[in-house]
Design a protein around this nucleic acid. Structure first.
Lengths: 146, 146
DNA sequence: CTCTTTGCAAAAGTTTTGCACGCTC
DNA sequence: GAGCGTGCAAAACTTTTGCAAAGAG
């Protein structure tokens, strides 16, 4: 359901970096490719570990700094996983509904629908809150883990 | 919207501890009261800090151990907050829909509705996933922060 | 060539663990 | 009283920071 090819996503991010005055370096590209190419949400440590398989490995500090920058540009975000840990995942425009497999960790993005919008309006009326954003995560088993 | 008085909630937890063979100690009661009495989700450090105001303060290790035990018994759970940090919050039976104020951090629990259930069925049909659980968090501003 | 970014290593912060003593049951 | 639970301090791990050297524009 995540239709964007990795390469396009990384190129889009690189463009975003340039426009915001950041340089596009080998290190940053490496981090972006690992995040964009993963089917699970990764921790900084996992990004670092994955870089060890490549011809040039990253420094932990650079992973943290790059992740911080990407978060600031709103290109990635942290998601909460069933085990209570954070993971890093590309930001998706519009509704943020994630579908996460409890067995293999695979994550996908699913579109929202009007039912959710109606529900939010209903909650606003009942509570007096002004709802500015929402975030839905569904946990289950993907087809291959059933 | 959280109707359970703190005292009842803590008593219910204590009962649960006993039934599972855990002892009810002063330390554990103190941690439970802090968590149950908070209107925001707390980190272990915050629980520890709050205990410093009391006549007897807790050890960090006991906070971690008590939190771990309460999580195991499914009496509390970690929630993801707008700033990306974890916080500890009492588990609510049934649907887990949280409403969090972006300004003051106040958290409330809101009931679900059929719109959500329909939505989930729709996603299952479209993706082939078996959805076992879901988790909705709404972010906004509570009445006093508007 | 300038000035940002990197990797290393050290520092700061968080979480876990071992152990002797204290407190529930 | 028996044995679980506590607090302390040390260890393990995670995240941040300072700085000289490397690399992008």
């Amino acid at each position: 359901m995540n239709m964007t090819p990795v390469k396009d996503l990384v190129e889009c991010w690189e463009e975003n970096l340039r426009q915001n005055g950041y340089r596009v370096t080998r290190t940053r590209r490496q981090v972006m490719e690992i995040i964009a190419g993963s089917s699970t949400a990764l921790t900084p440590r996992e990004i670092y570990q994955l870089s060890l398989d490549q011809d040039r490995s990253l420094g932990m500090a650079s992973v943290y700094r790059t992740v911080e920058m990407l978060e600031e540009l709103d290109l990635i975000q942290q998601v909460h996983q069933p085990d209570g840990c954070h993971g890093i995942w590309p930001t998706v425009e519009g509704h943020k509904h994630y579908l996460i497999c409890n067995a293999c960790g695979r994550m996908e993005v699913v579109p929202g629908n009007e039912g959710i919008t109606e529900y939010i309006t209903q909650v606003e009326g009942q509570t007096g809150y002004g709802v500015e954003g929402h975030w839905l995560q569904l946990f289950g088993r993907c087809q291959s883990c059933q």
